[in-house]
Amino acid sequence: MNRNCMNQNTNQNCMNQNISRNMNQGMMCQRGSSVSRAQNSCGIQTDKWSVPFAETEIPNSCRSDLICFINEVSFAAYDIMLYLDTHPDCQEALQHFRKYNELRNKALKLHAKSYGPLMTSSTDETDCSSWEWMMQPWPWELEGGAC
């Protein structure tokens, strides 16, 4: 996806955006999730950890879709990390963490390449001659909080 360095021309509301801001759905976008209700080896319900992204391509038709995806997988990885802090031997949780963390890292790289870096550590992914980090919207700005 081509973009201008200054990021001013990036259209953040793509045409096919149909993400609902349904109050109860929160960060979950329009993707369906394949719910499995099996109990895992740690004795907890895994349906909350269903794997909606397992075979999914990272959505990148517009910035807000990609940000939404980054928010989702980052939250999944973070919440499983907290669980692992008190259940460090749970193999299933470890697998989930690795999966979501890998998706998160891929998506962060893709964001840096397509729109600009969200973290200073991914500034290398941008091929920009100026300091693109500061040009990215801040998250409290309406355009930065888009999902």
């Binding site: 960060m27 980052s74 870096p117 969200l118 930065g144 909080g145 888009a146």
Partner: peptide, 15 residues
């Protein structure tokens, strides 16, 4: 700590 330029959960209040 490292900063990520996004909120953990998005905030978009129009009114």
């Amino acid at each position: 700590w490292h900063y990520e330029k996004r909120l953990e959960y998005p905030v978009k209040i129009t009114t």
